[in-house]
């Protein structure tokens, strides 16, 4: 049987597709703002007030993204909700417990200190991967 996981990710009732576009739009705006503010602060393009405004704007875009995702979760059909919740649990588990384990290894000197940002990156990658796995499982 052909693997329809990716098609299923983009299909579903029109309501879901509309909500998914909303999430992508807000995520894109948030990512653009995040990159712009990061560069602005690191390369000192922004004065202190501008940096603060940028951080607040990025946070508001992040809240809008969370709101759009919450709306998607509330309105999507029940199987997709189950897949999303399982993916969120997995991403959180990997991020929280994997991150703390890595921190312990850092303390013991077994691994180099890399900071905590990578934990969020791992969580961001783990979620869509887990969604795809879930879609395959129920295909």
């Amino acid at each position: 049987m052909a693997d329809n996981s990716f098609r299923d990710l983009c299909s579903g009732p029109q309501r879901d597709r509309r909500n998914q576009w909303r999430i992508m739009l807000w995520t894109f705006l948030w990512a653009c703002s995040f990159v712009a503010v990061t560069l602005g602060i690191k390369r000192q393009w922004l004065p202190f007030g501008g940096a603060l405004t940028g951080v607040i704007a990025t946070s508001l875009l992040g809240l809008a993204t969370v709101h759009a995702y919450r709306r998607f979760l509330n309105e999507t059909d029940e199987l997709r909700r189950k897949i999303e919740v399982e993916a969120l649990a997995l991403a959180f588990g990997i991020g929280a417990f994997g991150g703390l384990s890595y921190w312990l290894l850092e303390l013991s000197g077994a691994v180099p200190a890399t900071g905590f940002v990578w934990i969020f990156l791992v969580m961001i990658v783990a979620h869509p991967v887990a969604v795809l796995i879930g879609l395959r499982r129920y295909s």
Binding site: D8, S11, P13, D16, D77, L79, R80, K82, Y138, S139
Partner: peptide, 26 residues
């Protein structure tokens, strides 16, 4: 059927193949 039930086609397929049990409202 998915359109009539307002769910995704995947949900109908998963119920038919016994991979997923629907909620009481569904």
């Amino acid at each position: 059927l998915a359109h009539r039930l307002e769910v995704s086609r995947q949900t109908v397929n998963a119920i038919e193949t016994g991979k997923y049990d629907p909620s009481l409202p569904l």
